[in-house]
Amino acid sequence: MAVDASEIQKVANLARLSIDESQLETTADTINRILELVDQMQMVKTDHVEPLAHPLDATQRLRKDVVSEENNREQLQSCAPVVEDGLFLVPKVIE
């Protein structure tokens, strides 16, 4: 499997990463080298191995359904660029 510059551009757009056009080819090369490594790993026989969702051999601990968080809006919004009426303001988004 290999990717080209246009695919790099598409994925970068989905991930909201800005990659300079002059860097697209080099980035594709770098990522293709990683993909080659993945291809190599794919050759390992895993027929009798359970798929792994998490590297730790442990299961999730569950939490009781009890409110433990107080209203901390003022502090949490202190790092936001624009706030009004308790809302975070962001550049206009319309679907």
Binding site: D85, G86, L87, L89, V90, V93
Partner: peptide, 11 residues
């Protein structure tokens, strides 16, 4: 999407 000076409010 009401008018917050041309911005959107997030709750």
């Amino acid at each position: 999407h009401e008018d917050y000076h041309g911005m959107s409010g997030i709750d």
